[in-house]
């Protein structure tokens, strides 16, 4: 190759000649969703994750069947959505989300987030992605985007399986709010969507923490366990009244606030700080992941 050839081919958009195929001029788009779609395919095409999804979906199924077989006595109230299921099937979704929020949903997010960078490092595919080249910031953005999509899908899965099965077994109807008032069915369904959005935000924030943890190690399982320990540790600290000073700063503190979205009118006292908390955790740990991974030596 001559000097002239080298200079000429330094144009980034020019596909260098020298091969039989692909030697056409192609101007890359500034934004391409191909890598992102490939990332989603990797997550949602993996058998392990299907098993995880199945476990998430089992909870609302279990609740619906249990309540159908042995209906609870009417009355009660508070956060106990179980009591309302027989009047409105949509509450199967809310019961399932309440029960999965402390462990199953964080576990699912921890498994996915822990795998993002550490998993690729463990397999060695990280070095090949970086030499493609995938810009390191772009890699993190794509990985984070995939975590957020997974958080939404996992929450939707629990909610939709619960809602569908509940409506099929117990029928729909007006929704009795936690404040005791009654909302029309579709308003109640819209409230369920708000709940899904709020939980997705909380889980995405945990995912951002997980993304950071995942840049620290080459062991995906270790990363997953660390993320889970952080989440459960936060829940435990949140349950100790003597630590109330730090409660509002814990990442899990506002998770349960989604119940407020079922009051009439919606109580924002905990939901709004919950949203800010989720955004802050996402921003801080997203930045931390970037700072850590941006200049790190990839020796895996």
């Amino acid at each position: 190759m001559s000097v002239a050839d080298l200079r000429q081919s330094s144009d980034p958009a020019r596909v260098p000649s020298g091969g039989p195929v692909g030697a056409v001029v192609y101007r890359p788009h500034a934004v391409s969703s191909r890598f992102f779609r490939s990332e989603l395919l990797l997550i949602f095409g993996r058998r392990r994750n299907w098993v995880g999804g199945l476990i998430l979906a089992t909870v609302p199924i279990l609740i619906a069947i249990a309540v159908k077989v042995s209906p609870p006595s009417p009355g009660g109230g508070g956060m106990n959505f179980l009591n309302q299921i027989t009047q409105n099937g949509i509450f199967v979704a809310l019961s399932a989300l309440t029960l999965e929020m402390p462990l199953f949903l964080p576990l699912a997010v921890a498994a996915i987030a822990g795998d993002t960078v550490a998993g690729e490092a463990h397999l060695g595919t990280l070095r090949y992605l970086l030499t493609v080249p995938v810009d390191r910031t772009r890699l993190l953005v794509v990985k984070f985007g995939a975590i957020a999509v997974f958080a939404l899908v996992a929450t939707l899965l629990v909610a939709l399986v619960g809602a569908m099965l509940g409506l099929a077994l117990f029928g729909g109807g007006p929704v009795v709010t936690l404040s005791g008032t009654t909302l029309p069915f579709w308003t109640g369904a819209a409230r369920l969507l708000l709940v899904i959005a709020y939980i997705t935000m909380c889980m995405t924030a945990l995912g951002a923490i997980g993304l950071f943890v995942s840049t620290l190690t080459e062991q995906p399982i270790g990363a997953t366990i660390a993320i889970l320990v952080l989440a459960l540790g936060s829940e435990i600290m949140d349950a100790i009244p003597q630590l109330s000073v730090i409660h509002e700063y814990l990442p899990t503190h506002y998770w349960a606030a989604f119940g407020d979205l079922l009051r009439d009118p919606i109580s924002t006292a905990a939901v709004v700080p919950g949203i800010w908390s989720a955004l802050a955790y996402t921003a801080i740990f997203g930045a931390a992941a970037w700072a850590r991974f941006g200049g790190r030596d990839v020796t895996s």
Partner: peptide, 22 residues
């Protein structure tokens, strides 16, 4: 290979199949 190719945003996705086969 499809995943590696998808990560490269300077190639034409339309030719991915041909290039991967080659």
């Amino acid at each position: 290979l499809r995943r590696l190719d998808a990560a490269d945003r300077t190639v034409d996705p339309a030719t991915a199949r041909v290039r991967i086969d080659a």
